[in-house]
């Protein structure tokens, strides 16, 4: 292929210098370079491929709405609790501005999008965390939205499905963030007591307080390939135990090998896998 390029160049008697006008004609972000294998491809092809690198299978981070578009049947998603908004309970300087700017950037009111929708025709309540919003960290609004989503699933007697992506509890809301771990847990306990299904899908990255609460206790725990999943950060652990950790430490595959996950599922087959699981849990058979 490289030889081809050179030979083609030789045949050309002149070169084309792109004008300034044509430069601006090309929309920004038309090409995307894979952070893992450096493969460069058309962004539109990447999106068609569910944001998985065609060369190395790297699973790119997704926004909550991108996730909806590949996971929920078209035009069936109805969002919930978009009216909740974050306050600044500890009066942390700059916190309100950060929330505002992330909100504008992502089009979300907080770091999780919740709602109802169909997965291959079966109704579910879904919560999708978005790591582009304050690292997906959990404060009062994230905790409240997830809790309300679980309650809705319990009430409607449908499965609750969550895609996690979070750095953990949100520092700026202090202990209130910590308590969201307990809050979501009491709701999930009730959901479980009523015999309802909860599937947790861990995506990159799921750590800290989110890993140590709802993310890890699905009836079924799935994860995307190579997702970073863990309680403490790698640096903290290395400083504590004073040894270098293996390369694959805290990856989805590492957790699978240590018995913490039911399966690692490629993004291209996630919808089918979940829809089959939902079907197998349908009340009264199907």
């Amino acid at each position: 292929m490289i030889r081809e390029i050179f030979s083609r160049n030789r045949k050309n008697k002149y070169a084309t210098i792109p004008s300034n006008a044509s430069k601006t004609d090309v929309p920004e972000g038309i090409m995307t370079k894979c952070p893992e294998c450096k493969h460069i491809g058309l962004t539109k092809d990447l999106i068609k491929n569910k944001k998985v690198c065609p060369a190395c299978d790297h699973h790119y981070k997704m926004t909550a709405y991108e996730r909806v578009s590949i996971f929920i049947d078209e035009d069936t998603f109805v969002s919930m609790d978009d009216h909740l908004s974050t306050v600044n309970p500890l009066n942390f300087p700059g916190y309100t501005d950060k929330i505002k700017s992330d909100s504008e950037k992502t089009g979300l009111n907080e770091a999780v999008l919740t709602g109802t929708g169909l997965v291959n025709g079966r109704k579910v309540v879904v919560a999708i965390m978005d790591a582009h919003f304050r690292m997906g960290s959990m404060g009062s609004v994230v905790g409240e939205k997830i809790t309300r989503a679980v309650e809705e699933a319990t009430k409607q007697e449908v499965p609750f499905i969550i895609f996690t992506a979070s750095g953990g509890a949100r520092m700026q809301e202090g202990v209130l963030s910590l308590m969201q771990m307990a809050k979501t847990s009491v709701a999930l306990n009730r959901h479980s007591e009523r015999g309802q299904l909860f599937i947790s899908i861990l995506t990159h990255p799921t750590t800290g307080g989110v890993s140590a609460s709802f993310a890890s206790i699905g009836d079924i725990n799935l994860a995307e390939p190579k997702a970073l999943i863990g309680f403490a950060g790698r640096r903290v652990i290395e400083q504590t135990v004073r040894e270098k950790l293996p390369e694959n430490f805290q990856t989805a595959e590492f957790l699978l090998a240590h018995g913490q996950l039911d399966a690692v599922v490629h993004r291209s087959s996630m919808k089918e896998t979940v829809s089959t699981l939902v079907k197998l849990h349908a009340k009264g058979g199907n």
């Binding site: 771990m181 847990s185 890993s211 140590a212 609460s213 709802f214 993310a215 890890s216 206790i217 999943i229 863990g230 309680f231 403490a232 950060g233 903290v236 652990i237 504590t240 135990v241 040894e243 950790l245 430490f249 805290q250 240590h258 018995g259 913490q260």
Partner: peptide, 16 residues
Amino acid sequence: PGKAAEERGQSEAIAR
């Protein structure tokens, strides 16, 4: 926050 704790599922133990 140690290596063995992660391997044995610190997150799951707390969450459970």
